[in-house]
């Protein structure tokens, strides 16, 4: 987030205006995100169960008074694992979006402002990246980088680079042709000064909204990789991994897959809703 703050010095001053007149659906989305964020920051404030060590006596209990969302085959509380898992997903998504946004911005701005063969080379690179299925690309990267939470986040971030780079390139090209950029050169601005004062702030406006939508996508990708066994190793509480582990008990213990699935869906929907609201506001 610090990256965005430095790139968008003026945006932060106008952000409070975004919260005027929030519709009910949007309010719900914001509430969901707030809860999940609190889970990630202070998980032990929401549950007294240990997410990793279970009570063998309590194994595979259905949702009830003791375990609100039931317990798994090792007697671990599902709600506790969901709450502790939020940190995995959110932190991963933040890292992924940061990687995508920073590397993508760099490539996009470079291509859009320098032009010539540099632009062509970067655009072709983006085309190549976009032609590889995202999941395949992140799997390949994980194999190279090794398993682990950070590696998964970086791998997902790299697959997001192409999308960010192309959007920023298009924005930079549009802004570059505007009269005010020409006027800035006309009043004696040097290349980097004009880039910093005019091109970047104007080009990044719509990118911010795109980043919010990418955030939900990153959560989904991280869960998918966790489900496939390429994410955090067990017994880490991770949403995708929980679904994968619960799969074996699908017929007898439905809660092991249903609740993690619902949490992923709710979080992704909420970030998308907020992202779309941002898009509308900023345009």
């Amino acid at each position: 987030m610090t990256l965005q703050d430095t790139l968008l010095p003026r945006r932060s001053r106008t952000l409070p205006r975004l919260h005027v007149a929030i519709r009910p659906g949007l309010a719900l989305a914001v509430a969901v995100l707030a809860v999940v964020t609190l889970w990630a920051m202070l998980p032990s404030a929401f549950t007294s169960f240990n997410p990793v060590a279970g009570l063998p006596a309590d194994k595979l209990q259905a949702p009830g008074a003791a375990h609100w969302l039931g317990s798994d085959e090792l007697g671990r509380d599902v709600l506790a694992r969901l709450i502790f898992g939020a940190r995995q997903s959110l932190a991963g998504a933040v890292v992924a979006v940061a990687v995508g946004l920073s590397v993508g911005s760099l490539l996009g701005v470079l291509a859009g402002s320098v032009g010539g063969w540099v632009e062509q080379a970067i655009l072709r690179l983006i085309d190549v990246l976009l032609s590889i299925p995202a999941l395949l690309l992140s799997l390949a990267l994980i194999v190279i980088l090794g398993f682990g939470t950070v590696q998964v986040a970086v791998a997902v971030g790299v697959t997001a680079v192409a999308g960010f780079a192309r959007l920023i390139w298009a924005e930079v090209v549009t802004v570059r042709r505007s009269d005010y950029v020409e006027a800035a050169f006309g009043s004696g601005g040097r290349f980097f000064a004009v880039l910093w004062r005019h091109v970047l702030p104007n080009a990044l406006t719509s990118v911010l909204a795109y980043a919010a939508i990418q955030f939900g996508w990153a959560i989904l990708q991280i869960s998918t990789l966790g489900f496939l066994g390429y994410g955090a190793p067990p017994p880490t509480p991770e949403w995708g991994l929980m679904i994968a582990e619960g799969r074996n008990y699908m017929t007898t213990s439905w809660w092991l897959t249903l609740f993690p699935g619902l949490v992923v869906i709710a979080t992704v929907l909420a970030t998308n809703a907020v992202g779309h609201a941002l898009t509308r506001r900023l345009q």
């Binding site: 003026r10 505007s178 009269d179 005010y180 006027a183 800035a184 009043s187 004696g188 601005g189 040097r190 000064a193 004062r197 005019h198 702030p201 104007n202 406006t205």
Partner: peptide, 20 residues
């Protein structure tokens, strides 16, 4: 089109001075 929508009037007018 010739004024940067994200700058204030003060910043716009001062820009040539900061450049030179």
């Amino acid at each position: 089109g010739s004024l940067d929508p994200r700058q204030t009037v003060g910043q716009i007018i001062a820009e040539p001075l900061t450049n030179f």
